[in-house]
Write a protein that binds this DNA or RNA. Structure first.
Lengths: 236, 236
DNA sequence: TGATCTTTTGTACGATAGTACAAATAACAT
DNA sequence: ATGTTATTTGTACTATCGTACAAAAGATCA
């Protein structure tokens, strides 16, 4: 006979574990952690709820595995791009390359995982907003090294800017990046259709351009609040 | 006996409704909508779960009321500040004043409500990330006018920048603003204690400075992608 | 004071949550 | 084919969810 489904394509789903991971990633990224039930995930993956328990033990374990899956590749990609960026001769071009090294992997995945890194980055944004404990721990111990490397690289390109300012500005970058992935439709809406918020390439270019300019802004010398500013009572 | 609690201060809580609103605001802003139960809110407010149902009917109704409470005052404040900003003579100063008019009310409340607008803005950030339906509807129909007015004002200050770019950059501003309120501790951590992420005044100054620079960045002419950029394969 | 209205409390109900676990099934080495 | 392991299914348990509702308590005013 020709070919019994011997080796691979035996079951309906070739790899249920992957299907569950992908479904969970998508659902978590768009609805948050608590709004999504294990049953929702199972259904989206065409699996049985018990199967989720089998593969990942708990719902937290599933989230943990999603992070484990992506963190390595994405940070590796960032390191590579950052190393390449630091070799750029022209100072202006170098800063742009550094920013790009930070932004691009967040949009275009750090591995061959289906759907790209945009989905995972969006998931990180949502978990961050929800104050998810599992995510917080992983984030701090996995991304801080990368963030520091990025901040240092920017600082080397802009030695006259205090490190504090660079930290703030790179924080703004991450916030802008997250928000672009969380509510892209707002860009389309506010631009009255002239721009497409879910166009990753456009988002990257806009983000890089804006961020480079922000980094290059004059330092904020907190020693001299000399110049009077428009009065806007600070109640805090 | 001295004084029976005759008129006002009869009940232990002078205004339970307000206490519930405040507690819900705080809990939603830090944990998200779905992670917080009505019982959590009631307990934090020193109330009975049934009391929440009595005052707000449903959990969605409670969230709705929080928005109703803040949206008016905050947008009013923004309008006032924006109007004042548009009267600033110097062009550079005007742009800064416009940005400040957008940022400041988000941090310092649009009313006398305890805790300030920072908490409400953080709540908006979290709801946005969670894709909350109730919030999405209100946001679109309540804040879009303000956003358009802001974008128009910036555009008038920078006529040579395409409106599309302004939209993107103001979107980044909102993302940065949100993120600063959601995870201020990250700033403290990455700056190794040199900066305090929860210092609202510092956040405002940094954000305004960076955003003004971003707005002033050269336009992104999508007609000419002439100049070669560092190669970073776009998988999307 | 007593009648009426507002607010708070206590309890309960149905739905759904996460997860445990035994039985059923598929995959595979021998 | 058979025994063994890996995976999937089905079901069930307990906890908690949002919310309804009647009774208690408090406030208001004739």
């Amino acid at each position: 006979m020709v070919r019994k489904p011997t080796s691979k394509e035996a079951a309906r789903k070739p790899n249920m574990r992957e299907a569950i991971l992908a479904a969970a990633e998508e659902l978590f990224a768009t609805n948050g952690f608590n709004a999504v039930s294990v049953r929702d995930i199972a259904q989206a993956a065409g699996a049985n709820p018990g199967s989720v328990t089998y593969h990942f033990k708990t719902k937290d374990g599933l989230l943990l595995e999603i992070y484990r899956r992506h963190c390595g590749p994405m940070n590796l990609r960032r390191s590579e791009l950052l190393a390449a960026a630091k070799r750029v001769r022209d100072l202006k071009d170098r800063l742009e390359a550094i920013v790009r090294a930070y932004v691009v992997p967040a949009f275009t995945s750090g591995s061959d995982l289906a759907g790209g890194g945009a989905r995972f980055t969006r998931l990180r944004a949502v978990m961050s907003a929800e104050g998810n404990e599992v995510a917080r721990k992983i984030i701090a111990q996995t991304f801080d090294d990368t963030s520091h490397a990025f901040i240092d690289a920017v600082h080397e390109s802009l030695p006259h800017i205090p490190r504090t300012d660079i930290v703030w500005r790179s924080h703004f970058l991450l916030g802008a990046l997250y928000y672009s992935l969380v509510t892209p439709e707002r860009v389309s809406r506010l631009s009255r259709g002239e721009a497409d918020g879910s166009d990753a390439a456009a988002a990257i270019e806009q983000l890089v351009q804006a961020t480079v300019a922000a980094f290059q802004a004059p330092a904020l010398d907190q020693a001299a609040p000399a110049r009077r500013r428009p009065v806007v009572g600070s109640k805090t």
